[in-house]
């Protein structure tokens, strides 16, 4: 800009032409109010926040897909790993627990039982642990661009969901290989996945807020996750181990099934395998956790919206 023009601009800015008083004559806060300026940092109400998040849905989806694509972009086989990774995982669990350890002879179709549990649990586990890092590992993004911060944990969960869809393909193929029949219950699989996804979103939102300030969480999470894995009946049947034939102990098993991971695993097994029948109690637990986590998660995360990215 040449000098005369800038002088004009400033003259207009400070001059009486627009009726603007000289800086300092009027408190700046009042000046701001008069011109309808708003504070740069203000947390929107929850409905507005959710609408903003909805407006950013394309970003959330693209960010999730991009992360998945970039994850394997350096390997020679590229995106093939998206299928190979769950396949190898399934192979190793099958080998270890099905053949070598030969655990749980009394569980019918143990490989399908085990791998269902493992994939379902892994989905929740990975969503939650990546959610814990969603804010703390994206500080530069948060400090550069404006968007509802919930987009980040949400994108991480969707990234895991995309991986899960491939795992589910592997899982269904495997269940068919092990001679499970296709039943009407299979139609309910998307419902079960939707419920679990809602829970994962809520849980990762909560962990994202906790992880944004509690820096030691990432060191602790592996231990918490392993404990959760053992408590969720991935390798064994909670029903058989706790209650067995003793129906008086059923309430202890039911308390253990209140663990969301255990409930989602149980639900998926019930749907996929003919020897299991979905119990209403399991459905209730699954629905409860989905609703509770997603409502509570958004609320809890939103409460600290303006604090993310600081310090």
């Amino acid at each position: 800009m040449s000098q005369p023009e800038s002088a004009v601009a400033d003259a207009q800015a400070g001059g009486p032409k627009n009726g603007t008083p000289e800086q300092g004559q009027e408190p700046l806060a009042k000046l701001a109010k008069r011109y309808g300026l708003r504070r740069a940092i203000a947390r929107p109400s929850l409905p507005v926040y959710l609408r903003q998040l909805w407006d950013r849905r394309h970003f959330v989806m693209t960010y999730a897909t991009s992360r998945n694509v970039s994850k394997y972009s350096n390997s020679a086989m590229g995106q093939l790993w998206q299928v190979l990774t769950p396949l190898f995982n399934a192979g190793i669990y099958w080998l270890m627990f099905g053949l070598i350890l030969g655990a749980n002879k009394n569980i019918v179709n143990y490989p399908a039982f085990l791998i269902t549990g493992m994939f379902v649990f892994t989905y929740t586990q990975r969503s939650v642990s990546s959610g814990a890092k969603a804010i703390s590992s994206n500080l530069s993004l948060i400090r550069a661009l404006h968007f509802p911060r919930a987009a980040l944990p949400l994108a991480y969960t969707i990234q895991e969901f995309q991986q899960l869809l491939i795992s589910m393909g592997v899982l269904v193929a495997l269940v068919l290989v092990t001679n499970e029949p296709v039943t009407w219950y299979w139609l309910l699989i998307p419902v079960a996945l939707a419920l679990q996804t809602l829970f994962n979103i809520g849980a990762s939102l909560v962990l994202a807020r906790v992880g944004s300030t509690a820096r030691d969480l990432n060191q602790l999470l592996p231990f918490i996750m392993r404990t959760w894995l053992y408590a969720s009946g991935v390798f064994y049947s909670i029903e058989d181990k706790v209650a067995g034939t003793n129906k008086a102990l059923q309430w202890i098993a039911d308390i253990m099934y209140f663990n969301p991971a255990a409930a989602y695993i149980e639900l998926m097994r019930d749907l996929l395998m003919r020897t299991h029948e979905p119990r209403p109690y399991i459905w209730m637990v699954c629905v409860f956790w989905a609703v509770f986590a997603v409502v509570g998660g958004f609320w809890y995360f939103w409460r600290a919206e303006e604090k993310y990215g600081r310090g």
């Binding site: 002088a7 004009v8 601009a9 400033d10 003259a11 400070g14 032409k17």
Partner: peptide
């Protein structure tokens, strides 16, 4: 503060 004379300009 630059010259505060108000004058017509492109803006």
């Amino acid at each position: 503060h630059p010259n505060p004379e108000p004058s017509g300009g492109p803006e």
